[in-house]
Amino acid sequence: MELFTNQVLAGIATGAIYACMALAVVMIYQAIDHLNFAQGEMAMFSTFISWQLMQWGVPYWGAFILTLALSFAGGILIERLLFKPLAKAPVLTNVAGFIALFAIVNSVAGLIWDFTIKQYPTPFGSSPFLGSQLISTHQAGMIGVTILLLILLFIFFQYTRMGLAMRAAASLPESARLVGINTSWMIALGWGMATAIGSIAGMLIAPVVFLEPNMMGGVLIYGFAAAVLGGLTSPLGAVIGGFLVGVFENLAGTYIPGVGNELKLPIALALIITVLVVKPAGLFGRPIVKRV
């Protein structure tokens, strides 16, 4: 029983990583109805920017805030320049665009900061949390930040005019335009917020997986799995999905024989496909009704 509790705790700790990433995935899905395959790479790039700022002597929290602002602006810029013209294009073209973005960001990051693995600092320290050997203060901090982020997003979407406008633009663009919402800018805003959230995820993950251009590969798949499990339309679902995926991954690794580190990705695959087949809307998502 103790093993079980320990594994669940450790799972929640890793789950926080996926929850962060899933939150970013859901944000952008809300805004544009697409999964951004370049999300992980954009987060990685933001993390590198913060690292570079720290190398130049900016203190952690200063670099954190600056990176958030830069990522937000960067996300909007990418949307305005590259994806706004593709808004009317078929899904296929958009997917190709995301992949192109993926390749460019990954390659440019490798070019500027090369592919060696770098240490990344944590603001929370890495001593054991409350005497537990399984969760470090960093992981506890990560869980805290994820939940805080979720609450802030909830307040933003439920209680501010801007949040309401963004929701309207996402669910019924035509009607939203008729009541005077600039839907095109709402999408850009969604990109900006998703990129900023992604950068937070990146900066929290980097101390665990270390900083390098390919650090996000596995994390993104798990983030997708978490988002799909929780429902692509629900930020709360994404976070809960993230924690569930983390716990599931750990328990499967402990109790199913033959599932070790080498089967991590196939587990994510199995999870994604099972959820999509059994309950395509996810645990907390709304089913989509097609109009003929």
Binding site: L35, I221, F224, V228, E262, P266, A268, I272, L276
Partner: peptide, 28 residues
């Protein structure tokens, strides 16, 4: 068969996961 119930981005996602998982399956 499972892909049947998926369209657009979801299908892209499921196949994306398949491709990422393949090398690990082959190494089993």
């Amino acid at each position: 068969q499972p892909a049947l119930r998926l369209s657009g981005v979801y299908l892209a996602l499921a196949t994306f996961a398949l491709a990422t998982a393949m090398p690990q399956l082959l190494k089993l």
